[in-house]
Design a binder for these strands. Structure first.
Length: 267
DNA sequence: AATGGGACCTGCGCGC
DNA sequence: TGCGCGCAGGTCCCAT
């Protein structure tokens, strides 16, 4: 799933590829992805614009088109962005660029979102977003846990708690820190929270270095797979031996989401 | 505050 | 072989 490292990878690749490039035309194969504006208006407002500053906040990609015009992209579960000369399968919205390529929003399950806003900071999802795990200080990270009685795993995935963590990296971080995913957050001791903080930083940094994890439909901007998949210790490894203790990894639905962990190493 | 469910979606793997 | 079903997960929304 596209989480922080995947969106950050695409953001960096877009910066190198499309900065100052102009949109000559917009092709909409599936208007369901475009929210809050008609396909016609969407096309009219974007055509002729050039790509400016690119920002990532959590899993949200923000591309500036003009002083007061921002393209907001959320890949959700099965979306990815691709830059190529020909139309891809699952290309739902395409931007025909002045350099002869298509910037394409591909999405197998059509759950992604594209918006056009004049001020991205006023978006509810942005306003409510928790701190970025790669820039929050350790002290502030520890303070986030006060009074949080909920299970640690769904809490990590709560975007208003911490930005950009999804189902996969939440599980990997908890394995790294040796924390059971159902442990109540408020019961964690400070050294354990510090360990989790370091694990998140380590995992997210390494995942960005490896250009994300292609466990599903996610691809890099050029269509290549992300390489972090081979580093995964628990995610989708049910029944396989724990990389630490060799006992089998188990899968359990926690807060309605599939969760993999080692009951021996995580407690 | 926390939790549980449903909705949005498509493709895949399962059982019969 | 083929069909129906459940599941996969990010976010929002509603109910308890």
């Amino acid at each position: 799933m596209p989480e922080l490292p995947e969106v950050e990878t695409v953001k960096r690749q877009l910066e190198r590829a499309i900065l100052s490039v102009k949109v000559n035309n917009v092709v909409i194969n599936d208007a369901r992805l475009i929210k809050g504006i008609s396909a016609k208006m969407f096309t009219e407002r974007i055509t002729g614009c050039s790509f400016g500053k690119i920002i990532r906040r959590g899993k949200v990609l923000i591309i500036q088109l003009k002083k007061n015009l921002f393209l907001i992209i959320h890949l959700r579960i099965s979306g990815w962005l691709m830059l190529s000369k020909t139309q891809e399968q699952y290309a739902r919205v395409l931007f025909k660029l002045s350099n002869g390529t298509f910037l394409q929003f591909c999405d197998q399950r059509v759950l992604g979102e594209i918006k056009l806003v004049d001020d991205y900071k006023k978006l509810s999802i942005i306003e409510r977003m928790g701190p970025e795990p790669l820039s929050v200080t350790e002290d502030r990270f520890i303070a986030l846990f006060t009074g949080k009685k909920t299970k640690i795993k769904p809490l990590l995935m709560d975007q208003t708690f911490l930005a950009g963590i999804g189902n996969m990296y939440a599980q990997e971080a908890l394995f790294c820190a040796g924390i059971h995913p159902e442990k109540s957050a408020v019961t964690l001791r400070t050294p354990t929270i510090k360990k989790l903080y370091q694990c998140l930083k380590k995992i997210l940094t390494q995942a960005i270095k490896e250009k994300g994890s292609s466990v599903d439909t996610y691809r890099q901007l050029d269509g290549d797979q992300g390489c972090y998949k081979s580093y995964l210790n628990v995610y989708q490894r049910k029944g396989e031996p724990c990389t630490r203790c060799k006992k089998p990894i188990v899968r359990k639905a926690i807060a309605g989401r599939g969760t993999y962990f080692c009951p021996h190493c995580q407690n």
